[in-house]
Amino acid sequence: MAVYKVYAPPAPPTGGAASPEHFVFVRESFSWAAFLIPLPWMLYRRLWIVLAFYCLAAVAMALLAGSELAPVSMALGVLTPFVLGFEGNALRGWSLDRRGYTLEGVAEGRRRDDAEIRFFTRWVGGHAAAPQQPTPGPAARTLPITTLRETPTGIVGLFPTAGTQT
Rank of each mutant, 00 (worst) to 15 (best):
Y4A: 01
R118D: 15
G15K: 05
R27Y: 07
E108N: 11
F119W: 03
R45S: 02
T102L: 09
P40Y: 02
L158Q: 12
G157Y: 00
Y44K: 01
A17F: 07
G109K: 00
E28M: 12
F119D: 01
L36F: 14
D114G: 07
T14P: 05
A34G: 10
F159S: 11
L158S: 13
Q165H: 14
L91C: 12
V24Y: 03
R118T: 14
R141H: 03
S67Y: 05
S73I: 07
E116F: 09
T142L: 09
F23Y: 15
H22C: 06
L63F: 07
G163Y: 00
G77L: 00
C55Y: 04
G157M: 01
T146F: 13
D114E: 10
F86A: 15
R27E: 12
P9L: 07
Y101N: 01
V78G: 04
P81G: 14
L39S: 03
S31D: 11
V26M: 00
L96D: 01
L47A: 04
M1H: 14
P131N: 12
L64C: 10
F82D: 13
R99N: 04
L39T: 03
T135G: 08
L64W: 04
K5N: 14
G100A: 03
A139V: 10
M74L: 11
W41P: 00
P136K: 04
T135P: 07
G85N: 13
E150P: 05
W41C: 00
F30A: 11
A58G: 10
G93M: 04
G125P: 01
